[in-house]
Design a protein around this nucleic acid. Structure first.
Lengths: 302, 302
DNA sequence: ATCAATCAATGATTTAAATTCATGCGGGGT
DNA sequence: ACCCCGCATGAATTTAAATCATTGATTGAT
């Protein structure tokens, strides 16, 4: 078996030109090196160096081992460096799970600066989970979960990252656009456009329509926020989104936010992660940056 | 220090799914593996697996080490295989030194079949040596020397590979072409074309012209055999080459061989190599094939 | 819920391997 | 001829690795 140590020896002997010098460089005695070399050579069945007087000349095998050492040792050294970075929490992969569709816009703003600060961390975003976001956390499919429902389970911890108001989105000039707030009954002649998720996870149902036993005239689902707002602007329906998101789009797309009910619907978004990961530096840093980013995002418009 | 053994462990644990199974596969006790793993982990400063009940889940570090193992271990295994081949003399590099210009044509015929029989051997040919062919042998710049001068030195051995007659080459229809042999005086009005080497190494000087105190009207040098013969055919001079070589070219180029002196000049070509290499299989095989090839080459024409 | 089976961790002991120490041998240089 | 210097080698020592024996924990079956 060729061991890493053997490659160390081959490289060092080549560098130093003699066994004795190499032994010093490797913090060994000349004797130890001599023994090791002899054992290696009889194991390989071929000399690694030919002894010409006091000089050593690498044989074919020696030359090959040298090239091997020059290829492999840097890989070992790089690996140790990398594992060290992982150990110090400076490197790893951060898989983010999203249970909050509109948060994608917010996430993009967090990830940009994050990638700059953590060049050693690869970020991935997943939006579909076979056993829900929490299952994905437990199953190590993701490392962080962005969710509005902080379901407490032992082994998981949550941190609130931002609050926002969920509002109705209507086209500019719509009848509701001028009212101070919308009533559930106002939606009974409207088409409601939502992301394609179960109704239980849509606040406009659970906290607005269902309590009033109302329902919209029709219900359409659309995957992406952009198209959704285009549809609203075109008068094809109304939707429910975070206020800050609507206000951000309002520059480009003629839509207006309307409060849902007199008191509005307030929401809170949490980051969840496994307890044992809480001390991992690059995960912790993501939490911190997420909260900071929030500040600027939710306040881009007065 | 990440050792090869550690990579073995990581790979085997991944393959087997448990420490105990991996321990068996590695012919170790469960305890030994456990100890080694613990030491490795505290050396790296990070766990390689997280223990979830009795299951092991690789950490980021573990996943990285696994990919490392899958890259590195095959290289080690391949290296051992290769060194084994070198040890058995089935692989290596064969650097041939040539001190005999026209022999290049002959060499080409040897090398072709040789490369087929020894797919693990790389062949290289060198024609210029700072300290002569023998110096190149001693200096390990070459492994085999093709030479007409078998200078005996301790540590070197020679084998004759073929005999041939060195002849004068004249254009077809030349005055000398019909004579049974040429005399030194015949060259006094001719241009002599040779390879660009010292006169001491040209037999036509040392064994033909100089003993008779003759010299040609002019002396030109040309590197390649083909051009040399083209020049001869064009009447620009005469040359001296092995008879078999001239006869081979005579099909395509209108030249004729003429004996040098009544008795002709007989030459012998030797292969020289270092004594300690004599038992290397692929070198020995080259010797054998060289002799065999000779037979067919020197007798291609009656 | 209990029990047996299986797996991992650990401490003590044994075994094996690597290293050192002391010494001999031989080639090169002065 | 002499003295370094570098490599080889055998015996002693130190260090590391493996085993044995045991424990605690988890899982699956009864």
């Amino acid at each position: 078996m060729i061991e890493r140590h053997h490659l160390d020896i081959v490289r060092e002997v080549d560098r130093c030109g003699s066994l004795t010098a190499a032994a010093n460089a490797l913090h060994l005695t000349q004797s130890a090196l001599s023994h090791t070399v002899r054992k290696l050579e009889q194991q390989l069945g071929t000399p690694v160096w030919v002894r010409e007087g006091r000089k050593l000349r690498p044989t074919q095998s020696g030359l090959y081992l040298l090239s091997l050492a020059n290829r492999m040792l840097p890989q070992f050294e790089h690996a140790e460096d990398l594992v060290g970075q992982i150990a110090r929490g400076q490197r790893g992969s951060l898989r983010i799970g999203m249970e909050c569709h509109p948060c994608y816009q917010w996430l993009l703003k967090v990830v940009g600066p994050y990638l700059e600060q953590w060049p050693g961390v690869d970020v991935d975003v997943k939006q579909r989970f076979q056993f829900g976001g929490i299952g994905a956390l437990f199953g190590y499919d993701i490392d962080v979960l962005v969710t509005p429902d902080p379901l407490q389970r032992s082994g998981l911890i949550y941190e609130p990252v931002f609050d926002y108001e969920q509002v109705l989105v209507v086209p500019k000039g719509h009848a509701l656009a001028t009212k101070p707030w919308a009533e559930p009954a106002d939606l009974e002649r409207e088409t409601l456009i939502t992301y394609p998720v179960a109704a239980e996870r849509l606040d406009i149902y659970t906290r607005f329509l269902l309590p009033a036993h109302s329902s919209p005239a029709r219900h359409k689902t659309i995957e992406t926020t952009d198209i959704m707002l285009q549809m609203v602007a075109a008068g094809r329906g109304v939707s429910a989104l975070p206020r800050w998101l609507v206000e951000e789009y309002a520059h480009r797309i003629p839509v207006t936010p309307v409060r849902l009910g007199q008191d509005g619907i307030d929401k809170q978004i949490f980051l969840g992660l496994r307890e044992r990961d809480a001390s991992v530096e690059y995960l912790h840093s993501f939490m911190t940056m997420a909260k900071e980013t929030t500040w600027s995002v939710t306040r881009t418009l007065p």
